[in-house]
């Protein structure tokens, strides 16, 4: 019973991590139709913001809003300088953001070297709940991730701003003709997508090593979540993260991590087949 509870808590932690990492991709890829292969690097830079915050003797919790601001500015600059010039051409977007991811990794490497960095756990120790000991910081991570994801999703689905972004995706010409400032809306949406990736990076920073290649590990999982959750459905990020976390945790429990990855990929392929929506269809 305790082993099952522990697996459930591990699954919940994985769900929260996947959801917050995939949230930005859900906005940028799922909602705006932009295939951003540099999303993992946004997460990695968020982790470095946490490292710099810690290196300057500041609280880890300060790194969360700091990472959001730094990544919003970076994302907004990328949208203005690169994305808005190419977003109607998916194949160019893929190549450009792939190049961007390399540039960002190299830039971070130039500044911080290839050395592994770390951030101490701000909430060390474990808490006993449901009969098992579980790291306290992971409970905190789950709570913060859920709040960030839900608040962001509400902002995009219930607010005037969210309606505007969805209108641009649905019919950019009509949105233009309605007087919608499409440029500003895309700028903000891309910036918010990057900001949530930054928060995710700062949040997961204490759980592992921080290094320039770290972002690569997050990208496939984030795409899996968006594919499984469904294109153009922001709330699908939660469903997608839940399904992928359940599959991975379950398969790891009964087999191993390699089979868990295989199962997740098979699930993504199955979902694409069932919906019969090619990836490029997400890009209007």
């Amino acid at each position: 019973m305790d082993a099952l509870t522990l697996e459930l808590l591990n699954g919940l932690s994985l769900f929260a991590t996947l959801a917050i990492v995939a949230l930005g991709l859900g906005i940028v890829f799922g909602l705006m139709g932009i295939i951003n292969l540099a999303h993992g690097e946004f997460v990695m830079i968020g982790a470095y913001v946490a490292y710099v915050t810690h290196a300057n003797g500041l609280s880890h919790w300060l790194s969360l809003p700091l990472a959001a601001v730094v990544l919003f500015v970076l994302g907004a600059c990328i949208e203005v300088g690169l994305i808005r010039r190419i977003h109607r051409r998916p194949e160019v977007t893929i190549l450009a953001t792939f190049g961007l991811s390399i540039c960002l990794r190299q830039a971070v490497e130039l500044i911080f070297t290839k050395d592994f960095r770390g951030v101490p756990n701000p909430v060390p120790g474990a808490t006993r709940a449901l009969g098992v000991l579980f790291p306290t910081y992971r409970y905190v991570l789950i709570g913060i991730a859920v709040v960030v994801v839900v608040v962001t999703l509400l902002a995009f689905t219930r607010s005037r701003f969210g309606l505007t972004v969805r209108a641009i995706v649905a019919d950019r010409d009509l949105a233009d003709a309605c007087g919608v400032r499409t440029g500003i809306a895309n700028f903000c949406a891309f910036g918010i997508g990057a900001a949530t990736a930054g928060i995710a990076g700062a949040l997961v920073a204490p759980l592992g090593a921080i290094e320039p290649q770290a972002g690569l590990a997050y990208l496939p999982g984030a795409f899996l979540v968006v594919i499984v959750g469904g294109f153009n459905r922001l709330w699908g990020v939660i469903a997608g993260a839940l399904v992928v976390a359940a599959v991975q945790t379950g398969v790891i429990h009964f087999y191993d991590a390699v089979w868990a990855q295989i199962a997740s990929l098979a699930l993504a392929v199955l979902m694409l087949q069932l919906r019969r929506v090619p990836v490029e269809a997400a890009n209007p």
Partner: peptide
């Protein structure tokens, strides 16, 4: 915007 409600179209 055919997939949005009448009210959302008016807001836009």
């Amino acid at each position: 915007f055919s997939q949005f409600s009448v009210g959302d179209n008016l807001r836009l």
